[in-house]
């Protein structure tokens, strides 16, 4: 990576942050804070709620990859993957802060680390990188949602439930695999 490219990426941080739509993530964050607060008052383990929060937050972060000016910016030297990473960084930091707040509010949780959130988000990004351009972000944002939805309704102990549960039981492996898939599509 050239010095010019690094400088360009650094200078693009502020305008990219302005180009992002912050209202949907803020809405989801407020909703999750309310729900986890409600779960806290019920005194029951909040793992289910945190799993929903992980998928919802991951989907919101991936949804932030949508760039209305993508067609105009397609042939700029700062690649699409670098622009994606910039957006992910800008959305990811507040998402991790939110996750930390949610976990600290939630009672009796087993999966308190950021692994599940990162694993689901990485899966979504991998799908967004490889899916057809027109529906890439939509499919990417749908991925964490779909994984959790099927995971929740799959009969406990079944192979489907076990595989779909890897994001919760082995999140760092899932994160690693999804990152490799993303890296393989770095020129997309």
């Amino acid at each position: 990576m050239t010095a010019a490219m690094t400088a360009a990426t650094a200078q693009a941080v502020v305008p990219t942050a302005r180009a992002l739509r912050w209202a949907p993530p803020a809405g989801v964050a407020v909703l999750l804070l309310l729900v986890v607060g409600l779960a806290g008052s019920s005194g029951r383990p909040a793992d289910t709620v945190l799993a929903i929060a992980a998928a919802g937050t991951a989907a919101t972060v991936v949804g932030g990859l949508h760039d209305p000016a993508a067609a105009l910016l397609a042939p700029v030297p700062v690649s699409a993957m670098r622009r994606r990473l910039l957006r992910l960084g800008l959305l990811g930091v507040p998402a991790l802060v939110l996750w930390w707040v949610l976990v600290s509010m939630a009672p009796m949780t087993v999966h308190a680390g950021p692994g599940p959130l990162l694993a689901l988000a990485a899966c979504g990004v991998a799908v967004a990188v490889w899916a057809p351009e027109r529906v890439a972000v939509l499919l990417g944002a749908a991925t964490p949602v779909a994984v959790l939805a099927v995971d929740r309704v799959a009969p406990a102990g079944s192979t489907v439930a076990e595989v779909l549960g890897w994001w919760l039981t082995d999140p760092w492996w899932v994160l690693g695999a999804a990152t490799l898939v993303c890296a393989a599509g770095r020129h997309r």
């Binding site: 739509r21 949907p24 809405g27 989801v28 909703l31 999750l32 729900v35 709620v49 929903i52 929060a53 998928a55 919802g56 937050t57 989907a59 919101t60 991936v62 949804g63 990859l65 949508h66 972000v137 939509l138 990417g140 944002a141 749908a142 964490p144 949602v145 959790l148 939805a149 929740r152």
Partner: peptide, 17 residues
């Protein structure tokens, strides 16, 4: 909501909550 990709997580969180 201007973007469908933003609607999806919101709907998911709402219904699964």
């Amino acid at each position: 909501v201007s973007r469908l990709a933003a609607v999806l997580p919101a709907l998911f969180v709402l219904w699964f909550v």
